[in-house]
């Protein structure tokens, strides 16, 4: 399985500075999230098989940064990275932030998002399939769990994000 070459998506001027500041701000949250998931869903790692050591780049298109995930239970990594400083990834998954989140929460189907071209994958396809299947076997809602870590403000932000995503999706479908 080869690493796929791909064409980078053009970025806006000044994005690099915003990205670095954003990464600095969100990293403590990401560390808490990933530790909590690992503690509450240990069976997730078995489905990853040999791809526990694979570097995934998860690229939520509208956020100023991407996420670097290495789902190794012995050395778990989830960190925000500026796109221009992202590590060489074994597999890349790209889509709108709420689409990616809703896929993890079983509110959206990954194959359907791929068919509609809302989801892009490149690199090691087997790694992507394993990650998808591992996450899909997770009970509960990652979004809700994460929001709950921050109490009522966290849940309010999640509700606002969901409303915004729903509005955008409906607008897109109606045009």
């Amino acid at each position: 399985m080869s690493i796929t070459s791909e064409t980078p998506i053009p970025r806006r001027p000044g994005e690099s500075v915003v990205a670095r500041l954003s990464c600095y701000a969100v990293q403590p949250i990401l560390t808490r999230i990933v530790r909590r998931i690992a503690a509450r869903h240990p069976s997730l790692f078995a489905r990853l098989g040999p791809h526990q050591a694979t570097d995934f780049l998860i690229d939520p298109q509208e956020l100023p940064f991407a996420l670097h995930l290495r789902p190794d239970p012995q050395d778990l990594v989830l960190r925000a990275v500026p796109r221009d400083a992202a590590p060489r990834a074994g597999a890349t998954i790209r889509g709108r932030f709420m689409l990616l989140l809703e896929m993890i929460d079983a509110e959206q189907d990954g194959d359907a998002a791929f068919f509609s071209r809302d989801l892009e994958v490149s690199g090691n396809t087997e790694a992507v399939v394993r990650l998808r299947n591992a996450l899909d076997d997770m009970d509960g809602s990652l979004a809700e769990e994460t929001a709950s870590m921050f109490g009522p403000p966290g849940r309010a932000i999640l509700a606002r994000l969901r409303r915004s995503y729903l509005d955008k999706t409906q607008t897109r479908e109606n045009t």
Partner: peptide
């Protein structure tokens, strides 16, 4: 098999 599948995005 997924291990033999590749997706290539063009410009």
């Amino acid at each position: 098999p997924a291990s033999d599948v590749n997706y290539l995005r063009e410009a």
